[in-house]
Every structure is written in structure tokens, then in C-alpha cells.
Nucleic acid binder design. Structure first.
Lengths: 229, 229
DNA sequence: AGTCTCGCAGTGTGATCACAATTTCGGCGC
DNA sequence: GCGCCGAAATTGTGATCACACTGCGAGACT
């Protein structure tokens, strides 16, 4: 178990979504770990290991892992080893490019459907993000940040684009967690207020700029911290 | 077998890549069919059916299908039916947006590595595309077009972005084939010459515009033909 | 004591079987 | 004739087993 963050060692599968298939529940459990820092980049997972840990047979784990490999959240090496991919400068740059190209657009498309109630919910999430940042709660910050962005993007009703963005997030999740674990979260700035203001004003251009700025600030922080410096 | 195009009823698995795993060969076979028109949108596939057709056990087919579902090339319905996804106007629009956002960029990034030899090869491919277009060979046209674009994009050495684009292509392949089957290919125009010219001139802006124009023209044709009209 | 080698534990891959849910289609009743 | 119903075939899901290959560590030989 060494090399893995202990924060989200979920243990046996949560039975909350009891009606889904085992494969689906395993997939979601692994996905959460990847997204919010349960795995460290380079960590190698085994089918039987995960199966025993989650209390299921290796079969559904196999399918879930295959699925995550297809989404580029896991990596299958030639030597038959499955690992959480490491970050490289080139890959990081491509992720930033894709995020800038797609996410502001998703936000703008979602704007007509983001009513007052939705904005209030976003503010609540943002409050939790600020708290987590202050307290250095890396996982809490990442959960909140993910929730904030996805709560917007989901309203765009653009499932095809959203799937691409989701896959991208899976690819920098473990790396992001690594950086926060190493450098803390207290140096982060809350860039969501500009987005919320633009949302209230119905200012599409402002929202696009705010989301782009949020992406750039956040990615620059973890990029400089871990790749350049 | 009804509801499926007969053009690429590949039969048993080709043994050319004999060293790859069965899963990998099945994956590539299915992927080819999806990309170049072996399946019609809405066609439903069965694990055992594909397994028997390809001469393998259902197991590797299961993994390949799961993988293609993750790439949004296949669709898993609640009733446990696996189908080739149908196209909708909204999905089509998102595909066009993603292609415009990513593919011209990939082309520009590839330009420094596209030497005279590579350009010559592109011209050869383009000749074959023209021939296929004239002869109404829909599958040949699609294979050539795919080859032309990918031969460029691969040189960008941007695996992360390329994976996104590849997934996108898988999502409109069956639909594209359907349109060409219905309306023919003779009304198509070759938009690749502008790209080749820009490539020879080392004109990055021109290349970006040419690729974008190529995408727009091609997608407008199949979009108008099948969705609006 | 250092190095090479052999072997065992552990890995992903693939096949086969059991099962529950779904679909399909035949025949019965109206 | 037409529509409903139930049995049989077919589906995806999951478990278990066999196998070839990898990796690592213990042992022996020099």
C-alpha cells in the first residue's frame, strides 16, 4: 500500500448506489480515487489487489480498469503493469490547451440554464473551497473545485464535450494532488468570484474570461511548482 | 447481420499483428469497422455474435467493447443492449466544435516535422482520395481522408490531444458512412490542396485556416444532407 | 563476499461455466 | 383473425480456473 495516499483508502465498496452493476461501482470508486488524490502518479495497481481491497472478484475490476485505461486515467505498460500515469511537461501543456479550448465554451453554453438557485449553490460550494484552502485540506479543495466546475458544465447539456473534459480532469487529478500535498494549498487564490459575478450579470464574455483565467491560474501554480521549479 | 454494411464484413481476425493480445486485435478490428463504415448507426452488436464472427471467445470481445464504450464509439443502454450510437443534431454540433478547436492546432504543431518526404506521401494519399471520390467509393474515401489527417496529426507528437481527436472521429464515423452511402461522394470537393500548399510554403496560419476549412466543408456537407435536409 | 542462476510467488490474459434479466416467438384464448 | 401470455433462446454479468510470462529473492558456486 506504500506510495498511495491514505486519505481516500475507501475500503470496501460503498453500497449507496446498490442497484448499479458491480463493474459500475468499482469504476466510480477508482475514478474518485484518481480524481481526488487516492493514487499517486506512478503508483502501480493490480487487478487482484484492487479486487480484494474492494471485496469483489477480479472480473469487474478488470473491466473498470480497462475503461479507465481507455479514458487515459490509467496506463497499461508493455510489461503488463497497470499504473497511474506520470505527468510530463508536454502532456501538461496539452491538458492546459484542451482545458482552455473547451471549458470556457462549456461555461458559456451553460449560462442560460444557470438560474439564481444554481448560482446560490455555486456560492455555497465556493465557500467550502475557501475553507478547505485555508485549512490546507487538499482533498477537500479538489473535491470542491471539481464540484464547482462540473456543476456549471453539466448545465451546458453538451454530453459529448463534457466527456472529453471529464477525461482530461482524470489525467491531471493525481498530479494535482501530488503538488498540493507537497506545496500546500494556502498559496492558492480563489478565482471563482469573477466567474460568479459574470454569471449574475449575464455577461457571457466575462464568464468566458473568468473561467479561462481560473484555469490558467490554477494550472500555472501546479505547473510551475512541480515541473519547472 | 441485417442493418450492417457488408463492405467490411472482415470475417475472422487478420493475423498480421500476430504478437498483440487477442483483445488488442479485436479492438482494432471493431475500431476499423466503426471508423470506415462497417456498422450503421443504431446497429446493435452482441458479445457472443462478434466473438463467433471473429473466431475468438467472448472474453476479449467484452473488453474491446468496454473500451470502445469508454471512447464513446459504442453505447451501452440500460437494457444491456450495446449499439452503435445514433447521431443527433446537438451531438453533431459538439463534434464540429471540438474538431475546429483541436485539429487545426494539431496540424500547426505537426508542421515543423512534416518534411518533403512526408508531404509527398500526403499528396499520394490525396490522389487516392480523389480517385475514390470520383468512383463513389465511400469506404475508400473515408479511409483516405482518415489517413491524410492522421498522417499530419501524428507528427504533432501530442498524444494527449490526439487521443481526444481519435475518440471524436470514432463518434462520427458510422454517421459519415451512412450519409455517403445515401448521397454519394461525387458532390464532395477536395479541400486538401490548400493545406498541402500552405505546408509547402511553411505558412502556419494558412495551414490552420485550410484544415479548419476542410473540416467545415466536410461536416457541413454531411450535416446538411442528413440532419437538416 | 560477490555474482549468477534457479525457482516461486504474483501478474494479466483468456476460456468456460452459472445465472438472472431480457427479448423473442410460438400457441392459446377471446 | 387478433391480441395476450408464457416458455425457450439469447443477452450481459460475474466467478472460477488454467496458463504463460514477469519480477524478485534465496541459494549455491566461484
Amino acid at each position: 500500500m506504500a506510495g498511495q495516499f491514505s486519505a481516500t483508502a475507501t475500503g470496501p465498496l460503498s453500497e449507496e448506489d446498490g442497484e448499479a452493476t458491480v463493474h459500475e461501482r468499482v469504476y466510480r470508486a477508482l475514478r474518485e480515487r484518481i480524481l481526488f488524490g487516492g493514487f499517486r502518479p506512478g503508483f502501480s495497481v493490480t487487478l487482484r489487489g484492487l479486487a480484494e481491497e474492494l471485496g469483489v472478484s477480479p472480473m469487474p475490476v478488470r473491466e473498470a480498469v480497462r475503461r479507465l485505461i481507455a479514458e487515459r486515467a490509467l496506463e497499461l505498460h508493455g510489461n503488463r503493469r497497470v499504473t497511474v500515469p506520470a505527468m510530463t511537461a508536454a502532456k501538461f501543456e496539452q491538458i492546459v490547451f484542451a482545458r482552455r479550448a473547451l471549458e470556457p465554451e462549456l461555461a458559456v453554453r451553460a449560462m442560460p440554464r444557470l438560474d439564481t438557485q444554481a448560482i446560490t449553490r455555486l456560492e455555497t460550494i465556493d465557500d467550502r473551497i475557501d475553507t478547505a484552502m485555508r485549512e490546507g485540506d487538499a482533498e477537500g479543495y479538489m473535491r470542491g473545485n471539481h464540484q464547482f466546475h462540473m456543476a456549471i458544465y453539466e448545465r451546458a447539456e453538451a454530453a459529448t464535450l463534457l466527456a472529453v473534459v471529464t477525461s482530461i480532469w482524470l489525467q491531471f487529478g493525481p498530479f494535482m494532488r501530488l503538488v498540493y500535498g507537497r506545496f500546500g494549498t494556502s498559496d492558492l487564490q480563489d478565482q471563482h468570484m469573477l466567474a460568479l459575478a459574470a454569471l449574475k450579470d449575464g455577461d457571457a464574455g466575462g464568464l468566458r474570461a473568468a473561467i479561462e483565467e481560473d484555469i490558467m491560474q490554477g494550472m500555472r501554480f501546479i505547473g510551475e511548482a512541480a515541473l519547472a521549479g
